[in-house]
Design a protein around this nucleic acid. Sequence first.
RNA 1: GGCUCUAUCGUUUAAUGGUUAGGACACUGCUCUGUCACAGCAGAGAUACGAGUUCGAUUCUCGUUGGAGCCGCCA
Length: 583
Amino acid sequence: MNTNNIYRNRTLDNVSEQDVGAALTLAGWVENIRDHGGVSFIDLRDMYGVMQVVMRDTSLLDGLSREDCISVSGVIEHRDEETYNPKIPTGTIELEAKKVEVLGKVYRQLPFEVMTSKETREDVRLKYRYLDLRNAKVRDNMIFRSKVISYLRQKMTDMGFLEIQTPILCASSPEGARDYIVPSRKFKGKFYALPQAPQQYKQLLMVSGFDKYFQIAPCFRDEDARADRSPGEFYQLDFEMSFATQEDVFKVGEEVLYETFKKFAPEGAEITAAPFPIISYKQAMLEFGTDKPDLRNPLRIIDVSEFFSRCTFKPFHDKTVRAINVHAQLTRGQHEKLLKYAQSIGMGGLGYLEVLEDMTYKGPIDKFIPDDMKTEIRDLAGLTAGDTIFFIADVEELAASYAGQLRTEIADRLDLLEKNAYRFCYINDFPMFEYDKESKKIIFTHNPFSMPQGGLEALNEKDPLEILAYQYDIVCNGVELSSGAVRNHNLDIMVKAFEIAGYTEDDLKEKFGALYNAFQFGAPPHAGMAPGVDRMIMLLRNEENIREVVPFPMNGNAQDLMCGAPSEVTEQQLREVHIKVRQ
RNA sequence: GGCUCUAUCGUUUAAUGGUUAGGACACUGCUCUGUCACAGCAGAGAUACGAGUUCGAUUCUCGUUGGAGCCGCCA
């Protein structure tokens, strides 16, 4: 880039051997100073690269320190061949400084060294995030993020989707996550809420006739953080389509994600090609013990409850029994560690069998399997010599969950995960309702606006807990990237569904008035989903923590350590919005 | 709300019931004409806070505060 102003006339990606002899002014930050007495070097860094500046007049160095922001004028010189630096693109040239101007001085000792900031305690990095962002790796994550987002926009636009902004100040909704609320000045005692997602607006856009909508949408949820979950706010690639079925949405999701991952994944990465495998919720809970399976993990869980109901091992009778064949022999140490892990997640013990060379079994469970049933378990679990099979028994829900956690733990310990691969799948057929033990009521499992499979007839006739929804997730490497649904655009079905979840038609009118009204004016069938943008980038960058790909993340307690949010406001501000804070 | 881990110079890391609490990088000063995360010499700089046990606590115990991870929660 040519900029040509008083600060600089080139950026550092645009200086090359062709410029040897040219008088240039460059600007950036002092990354490093190497003072050799008679001659000194500084590494000048800007957003685009690094350039060595040589100072033969060492008085130019006076008063300079690391991370000062400076403008340097001088002449580009060719380096002697033995002093080339192959590590940087500008390694065969350097700028001989004639004049240095400090544009922004460093007045205090830096809280950490920029070059190694990623090794610094996270709360210190976050407090000085603007310095942390000077680090090349952190900066590259942001540049990468920008490129991904701009590609997503381009791709969605190319596919015929229209980007439309929806409000940030909207009405609070009773379902889902806790809202962030904003008090109203004009209406005493009333509040706006920040959107958990643009859910209702995008459905209203469908009613308006905007066939294909998308948005890189900020979403706000007042829930606790996790390593892969930003507290407070995050971004989704939110999209919705009219006259669309689940399959139509799957096609769009597959295309966008596959193309994006193909373009941005590390070199040589394997990416699931479309069509992505579709796994029902029920099958996922059985085979993987979770609704977000990591398909890089080759281990599968099988159900052996019926088999063990016929064996003589009492503790397994009347239990759900799941089994994992790990296709390997574990050392005694590995067994001990695994048992310890099993106990740490709440399991009583961990039964297993080892398959010997002669296909007989060894292990604490063996004596409870009658001789005439030994080949049956072999066929059931596909046992071959050298295998070890673990058994997990409990009530169904816990057995599934324990088996799922063990599957992950074993694969980790035995290093079984497929390397440099992005394995996608759809999980669908989620239950529409579930029983909430706390309130002892039937509640919506996920999105209350999803279309129940079987429509009104199912709602009227089936056990609510048996009804499935046209509701789906995209999972990649064990990370839930997205959820979505075919929406319920039929008012009768919606009234009935909400009735089952304990809402009257009046509740519906009051809480979701916009949708309730809109669906009386010719609502088209529609469906959509919303892949998480931050999570996508985290996966593509192989970062363990989502904060590494967010420009200004809050800490785990949803505090902005840099600016001090949340903070107190003045008495007057509170008075204006009719709020009194209880001491 | 619950569980687990954690807190030593600016950063990072070591050690210890009695020490001058050590190193590395950064910082300050000096030396050095080709380095590139330069090198050498010298210097300044730390046991989060509050109790308890003890002759003596930075070390052991409890609590507070902060941080991280997990569970709950996240339509």
